[in-house]
Amino acid sequence: MSVGLLIISHSAKIAEGVCELAAQMAADVVLVPAGGTDDGGIGTSFEKVQSGIEKADTGDGVLILTDLGSAVMTAESALEFLEDAQRNRVRMQPDVPLVEGAIAAAVAAQTGVTLEAVVQGAQSAQTGAPAGGTQGEAASAEPAIAPSGSAEQPAEPSESAIALSPEPAGGAGGVESASGDVELINPMGLHARPAAVTAQELTGMDADITINGVDAKSVMLLMTLGLKQGQTLHVAATGPDARKAVDFVTGQAADGFGEL
C-alpha cells in the first residue's frame, strides 16, 4: 500500500474537488475528502475528520492537508483522540497551499515512498521558487556537458535534439554524473501530467537530478518552471542512476511525453 491522504476543507466541494484532481495523477493512492459540516454546511466536522483518518490509514501512514485555520484545529482535536501507535503514523502539514500540496503529496505517495517523503512532497508545494541548493547544483553541473579530459566518449549529439554527455566516475567515489539537453516538442510543454510522470519515475532512481536547476523529483517545482513547447530542458544528474535518469527524461521529452 501507500500513504493515504486526508483532505480537510470547510467546503465539501473543495475537499472532493482536490481529491478528484489529485486522483488523476495518483490513481492508487487512498484520497479521502472530509469537507463541510455533518449537515452539509460550511465548516469542518470532527466526525468526518475522525472517520476520514480511519479510511485514509492504510497502515503506511496518513498525511492530512487542510484549508483555513479551524480545519487545523479540528484535525488536531481528532489526533488527540487517536491511540499513540496510530497517531505516530499521522502527519499534518497545515502551511502548504491545499491544491498544490495535495497533488505533490499524492504523486509522491503514488511512488510508494515513506510518510516522511510524502510530507516532503507536500512541503515542496510551499516553495514557489527552487531552493537555493538546487540552483547551485545546476551551476556546478554545467561543466558536465564538457568534462575536462576524462570523457572517453565525447558528447555526441544524436540526430534528434538530444545531447548526452556521460561522465564516467570521477575517480575514487564511483559517483556517476550525466547531463543532457532536449527540446520540448509536445504542444503543452512540461505541464502537470508529464511533470508528474517525470517526478514519479525519477523518485525511484538513486540519483540527484535537476531539470533547469530545480529538483526533478518534485512535480511542483517542475510545474513552476512553466516550460513550453520549443524550450529546452537541461537535465543534470549525479549518483549511481544518473545516466538512467537523464536517459529517461530526454527519452520522454523527445517522445513528446507520449502526447504526439
Binding site: 454546511g41 460550511i42 465548516g43 469542518t44 466536522s45 470532527f46 479551524s70 484545529m73 482535536s77
Partner: peptide, 13 residues
C-alpha cells in the same frame, strides 16, 4: 467538536 463546525467547535470542545 462534532456539531459546531467553526473554530469554536474544537476550541470549546
Amino acid at each position: 467538536m462534532s456539531k459546531v463546525g467553526g473554530a469554536a467547535g474544537p476550541l470549546f470542545g
